[in-house]
Computed example of a mutant assay.
Amino acid sequence: MKNTLIRLLLLVLALPLLLTACSDDNDTPATGTLQLNIQNMAGTEPLLLEEGTYTSPSGDTYSVSNLKYYISNVKLISSNGQTTFAEPESYQLIAQGGKTSFELKDIPAGTYDKVELAIGVDETHNHSIDQEGDLDPSNEMAWDWDTGYKFLSLTGAYTGDTRSGVLVFHVGGDANYKTITLDLPMAINLREQAAYELNLQADVNELFQGPNLIDFDVMNSGGHGTGANMLAENYSNGFLKVVEVK
């Protein structure tokens, strides 16, 4: 009888600890989400279609009537340097006046301190336009004279030192698919918080400098070839930057 009472007493004392442990297990999320928000800018000013007039790095004035670009193959990289999450079917068409945010879902609980993404469409998907979603040709990002996609489309108008006219930059081609890694100012810990937001800025001015300074009097259009390659080198260096994690 005495031993039974002792066992009951020990069980009563241990019960709160067991309940706490179970509660802790239940409170730890198995997966989480990350919403990426992108604000298109021209230098320090928010980009406005048609209405805004901006100064390029070479000193030309310009306006933008259309801006679209693909962000693809988004990955989160853990603090130990290993890629631990990749968004499935990761092709997001960002458009000023259209979609400027998207959500990563079912991310395994863990800590991530880098985001890897690409501008453009990878070679596997770039040679077929029989696709859906953001890769649907009806989004007006497929070439009308070749198989494949425009990775970035910018049109507008400019006034340079010696001339003025239209801007038409359509960048494509497998060589211009560029992968970028961005460090996060604060790690995303999905064991502590189930949902985060990542705010990014995309600076149109960076398309026209670093490493290639673009003078609109000299180059005001490009699709394939040297001009497109120069813009692609630029958008892989500073076009996208992290503003905050919250």
Rank of each mutant, 00 (worst) to 15 (best):
L48M: 13
E116D: 03
F102Y: 11
T155W: 01
K114Y: 06
T111F: 07
S72P: 05
Y149N: 02
I77M: 09
Y158V: 01
H125F: 13
K105Y: 05
P137N: 11
K68C: 02
G98H: 03
S101N: 15
Y70I: 07
P108I: 02
Q92W: 12
D146T: 02
L47K: 07
S101K: 12
K75E: 14
S138A: 15
L67E: 04
K105F: 06
H127D: 09
L117V: 06
F151W: 10
W145C: 02
S78P: 05
L93D: 06
T44H: 14
D136Y: 04
A118D: 03
L104T: 02
Q82H: 08
T111M: 11
G97I: 00
Y158Q: 01
D113R: 07
L117F: 13
K114N: 04
G43E: 10
E45N: 14
L135S: 08
E132H: 05
G120P: 04
E123H: 05
T162N: 14
L67M: 14
D122G: 11
G156V: 03
T147Q: 13
P57K: 07
S138R: 15
K75G: 00
F85I: 02
D136W: 10
K105A: 12
Q82V: 12
T147H: 09
D122T: 04
L104R: 05
D161Q: 15
G43L: 06
E123N: 09
E89V: 00
G52E: 02
V74D: 04
S79A: 15
G156Q: 10
Q131F: 10
Q96E: 15
T100I: 11
Y158C: 01
L104E: 07
I71M: 15
F85W: 07
L67F: 14
G97P: 03
E51G: 01
L117P: 01
N139T: 05
L67N: 00
T159S: 15
G156S: 04
F85L: 11
E103G: 02
T111V: 15
E51F: 09
D113T: 06
L93H: 05
G97D: 01
D130W: 03
D106Q: 13
S153Y: 13
Q131S: 08
T84W: 14
E116M: 14
K75C: 04
S128Y: 09
Q131R: 14
H125Q: 12
D146N: 15
L76T: 07
E50S: 14
E45I: 12
Q92G: 00
K114E: 12
G120K: 05
G59C: 01
E132F: 08
